[in-house]
Write a protein that binds this DNA or RNA. Structure first.
Length: 239
DNA sequence: AGGCCGATCCTCT
DNA sequence: GAGGATCGGCCTA
């Protein structure tokens, strides 16, 4: 936990996840994404954070279908990326001011996805990347201790997109498994030992489905009252 | 053509 | 803990 130095990274940290990683049902991909890195290369900087919270949204081919999912009523111009191949970014605008980022799962025609809900930002506290993320978020650079700042930067689906500069226009539909992509998900060897699950946040349908996953004890998980969950069996998630 | 509302965040009490 | 900001997309007529 805590900030880790970006110094020494030639380009992007860790190793890019292959497409096959995402070609599984979202309720399996979501917990497996915890501990992995989301990295965005832009303007000579690499913005990166460790995924500490994610939610699964199921495609309409499931029985019963997931009424909280954007794909619930079938393809539309907004959600068409969800019905494409796995490992792509689905970025949408919400409340007129924010963006949320998902990773598509399963195979073409099956619209499962994982919403990225919180990151633990990486980078030197005095480095250019963190400084830019603070500006992206509109925060006061001197207003926080290092610990509080880590929480303010990317603990929330809208916040993480704002911090890393992820927008619908620039990033919706990008292939996260393409080595040339500015937006990737990577594995730096970080080992996850425990995952907790709860109901999803901010939805009105299927309010008790246990499809939110997070790393217990991580200070960057969003929400103060959403930290008590049920343990996910490791034998199922890490075979 | 128009109305409704959201997978959110921030501020204020 | 409650309420406002703010607008693209989806549904209904």
């Amino acid at each position: 936990m805590g900030y880790r130095a970006l110094e020494g990274w030639g380009a992007l940290p860790g190793i890019q996840l292959p497409r096959v990683f995402f070609e599984a049902p979202p309720e399996l991909v979501a917990p497996r994404l915890l501990g992995k890195l989301l990295a965005h290369r832009t303007g000579g900087l690499v913005f990166a954070g460790r995924i500490v919270e994610a939610e699964a949204y199921l495609g309409p081919h499931n029985d019963p279908p997931d009424p909280a999912a954007h794909a619930h009523r079938g393809p539309t111009p907004r959600n068409r990326v969800l019905f494409g191949p796995a490992g792509h970014a689905y970025v949408y605008a919400i409340y007129g001011r924010y963006f949320c980022m998902n990773v598509t799962c399963e195979i073409e025609g099956r619209a499962g996805c994982v919403l990225l809900r919180a990151l633990e930002p990486l980078g030197r506290t005095d480095g250019a990347e963190v400084a830019q993320m603070i500006r992206n978020r509109g925060l006061d650079p001197g207003g926080f201790s290092a610990g509080k700042l880590a929480r303010q930067l990317a603990s929330g689906p809208g916040r993480l997109c704002q911090a890393l500069g992820i927008t619908r226009l620039r990033h919706n539909g990008l292939d996260l498994a393409d080595p040339a992509s500015p937006l990737q998900i990577r594995d730096d060897g970080y080992t996850v030992t425990e995952v907790l699950t709860t109901a999803r946040i901010g939805i009105r349908e299927a309010v008790d489905w246990p499809l939110r996953f997070f790393l217990p004890g991580n200070r960057c998980v969003s929400g103060a009252k959403n930290l008590i969950g049920k343990r996910v069996p490791l034998s199922v998630e890490f075979d």
